[in-house]
Write a protein that binds this DNA or RNA. Structure first.
Lengths: 227, 227
DNA sequence: TTTGGACTAGACCATTGAGTCCAATGGCGT
DNA sequence: ACGCCATTGGACTCAATGGTCTAGTCCAAA
């Protein structure tokens, strides 16, 4: 019985390519329709592959989904990487926010975070998926936390600040903001949520590099507030 | 052609009861399995009704889902009502947080917010559902905002505070916190998110009724922090 | 008491979707 | 060259699912 749930197998270059292609296509479809509403036939058609190919590389649909999750985690984290890597000052934190906002605005229709959607749909009924996603969010939080920790170590943040809790709160604000934004079809909630979270970090700053927010001075957001 | 998507129709007491029963059962199933993975047959079986009954009260599955959404909105809002109604002081805000946390901890398995789940699954592909949910979140935000507004009017909050943005941020923190909590299977993220959001409100307080949080003094949460 | 319409039963249908199977084919190491 | 095995094609099975249809039963008002 060959066929593994996991990549650990002999794979020629061609095979790896096909496998990757299936994952990418599946990821895109799942991102827009959700995992349960994405049929294998959909994936097959869009990728030009055949049934047997899919089942040659994945044990079953769940295995494909798991692969998609891994792929999305790497993808999202990679996208955050450049920003998070040097997340070591309040300025950098605000820049990160601007980038996130820009990214959210860019995608047509405010589709939300791939990881958030996946987590919401699968966490409750697919343990393997849940733990995988939990791990993904954990890495994300760690990256954020590392930056915050560095700031504190350098004395930019007060010792009373709790990097872990702060990171968690920022991540939650991002996810919640994205969910509300996608529902209301306006980034206003996302802006407000991030504003509050970062403002809170700024409050713990020792130097006054803090950028006064208050009534929110969103230069980078073209979106007008609802009147 | 009778059969309407909406309730606006002659309904005997018996009919209304049956209809309500179907909605309740569907709501429960959808809450735990998601809308697309809940089959009409599931609903039928659990409610002891027959196909024709379901189709007598609802035009199709989408109509049922819409009804479930309305029901859940009322349900969630009603649950918040007592707290939100007198949300007029920092103390009340912290009590609200404690109640939310307790509620989240109570449900087995940290299932998340019904509205959040619904929104996440449906917002992107079912316009009617999306706008309905957007309306629900809007009412929720309004309730929060009203309390914050009252506080400001009474002079407990600084004039610089923006009730609407604050309410949005709190709601986002709650939703994001719940999502992360359900994924990680620990309320830690929810605690952190709410802590930051409320702490931010407290920062705008004029009197010092603010409860110093900092490294988080969670008296009401039995959950230990991860070591 | 009759009668129209609300309400209930459940067989039936068409489609979709996950997963299986057998038969090729083609690339790569020896 | 050759043979093995990764790879590919695609028809086929079987269960689940949304939705339809016919045939009543029950209730309330005229």
């Amino acid at each position: 019985m060959p066929k593994e749930t996991e990549p650990g197998r002999r794979l020629t270059a061609r095979g790896a390519a096909m496998r990757g292609r299936l994952i990418e296509v599946a990821a895109a479809l799942i991102y827009e329709k959700g995992a349960s509403r994405t049929s294998l036939d959909d994936v097959l058609e869009k990728s030009g592959a055949s049934k047997s190919q899919l089942y040659h590389y994945f044990a079953d649909k769940d295995a494909l989904i798991l692969a998609v999750i891994r792929w999305q985690i790497e993808r999202v984290l990679a996208l955050q990487q450049p920003h998070l890597a040097q997340l070591d000052s309040l300025e950098a934190l605000w820049r990160w926010r601007d980038a996130v906002l820009a990214l959210a605005t860019a995608a047509p229709g405010l589709r939300g975070c791939p990881l958030g959607s996946l987590a919401n749909e699968l966490a409750g009924r697919f343990e393997n998926a849940r733990s995988l996603l939990a791990g993904g969010f954990d890495r994300w939080r760690e990256a954020l936390e590392a930056g915050l920790g560095a700031m504190r170590a350098r004395g930019e943040l007060a010792g009373s600040a709790d990097p872990r809790a702060l990171a968690l709160a920022i991540l939650a604000a991002l996810q919640g903001g994205l969910l509300l934004a996608k529902t209301a079809q306006t980034i206003e909630p996302l802006e407000a949520a991030l504003e509050v979270a970062l403002e809170h970090v700024a409050r713990h700053a020792t130097r006054k590099s803090a950028r006064k927010g208050g009534a929110a001075a969103a230069r980078s957001s073209p979106e007008p507030r609802k009147p």
